[in-house]
Design a protein around this nucleic acid. Sequence first.
DNA 1: TCTAAAGTAAGAATAGTTATTAATTAAAAT
DNA 2: ATTTTAATTAATAACTATTCTTACTTTAGA
Lengths: 141, 141
Amino acid sequence: MGRKKEISIKLTPQRLVIMEYLEGNMNHPSAADIYNAVSKKYPTMSFATVYNTLETLWEKGRLRELTIDRGKMRFDSNTKPHHHLICVQCKNITDIHRKFALKLPEGEQYNFDIIGIHVDFYGICPKCKKEKNNNVEVKKW
Amino acid sequence: MGRKKEISIKLTPQRLVIMEYLEGNMNHPSAADIYNAVSKKYPTMSFATVYNTLETLWEKGRLRELTIDRGKMRFDSNTKPHHHLICVQCKNITDIHRKFALKLPEGEQYNFDIIGIHVDFYGICPKCKKEKNNNVEVKKW
DNA sequence: TCTAAAGTAAGAATAGTTATTAATTAAAAT
DNA sequence: ATTTTAATTAATAACTATTCTTACTTTAGA
Ligand SMILES: [Mn+2]
Ligand SMILES: [Mn+2]
Ligand SMILES: [Zn+2]
Ligand SMILES: [Zn+2]
């Protein structure tokens, strides 16, 4: 199942600082999150380089792209198969590593070659439950 | 579980033609898909009206918004709880109505109020498997 | 029928992402 | 160690999807 390709890319300082930031990062950052963080360590970093590096890492199987968040991509350096718990209010994303028994129903219309299964749990996280602006409005999920 | 609110909105011709297009539509169209289709029946339709109507229908619980597709929202007029089978090549989305037994692991960090669970199966659909440009490149999933 | 609140259309504005290109650089070849 | 070259970077333009603004129009209730 592991389609991990050889990681043979030029090791530029820009790529190294981005990879260091992503290593073990559990926050599922957006491209802007990554740019803001790595700019501190490497001030001439450009947005294009962040996107290029993310693309390269994805191609090499070192990164997962999440389409969970409305309007922007989120990136996941945890490439082990896992699922997510998403707070619809603060958009926090938590990993769930339990494996679920999920089988497609039989049927000709389902004759897919399956390459991945993602389970998304949507809800309100404990932190958001506590806050006063709790019931203001939960928009868009 | 059904938080279906009263559908009390002004019945404008624009809304009626959009609702008619969505009624029973299994294609999970984007806003542009909807605009292109309803413009034929109602040529002065504007993009803003499409977005406004989709927003209203969503607020009334008559529409589900899918974040499955990179870069653009897809809309689902089937509001019954169900899951999806997504072709990573042609981006076709098929409904799966089987209900799966999915429980969050116990643990304080998982103390969410769960409001929805979505399972996404990713793969290559039968049609795309047949086509010659099959192995050109499967980008982005 | 009258009125007020709500909705529409056109287009400007914004956000996120991708494309372009000249200059730079990592790493392979000598 | 130097040269070579193909890959990478930074700046910024372009693009796509979505949201905002505003003057005008319309629905639905009084
Ligand atoms: Mn994750
Ligand atoms: Mn569906
Ligand atoms: Zn939260
Ligand atoms: Zn397909």
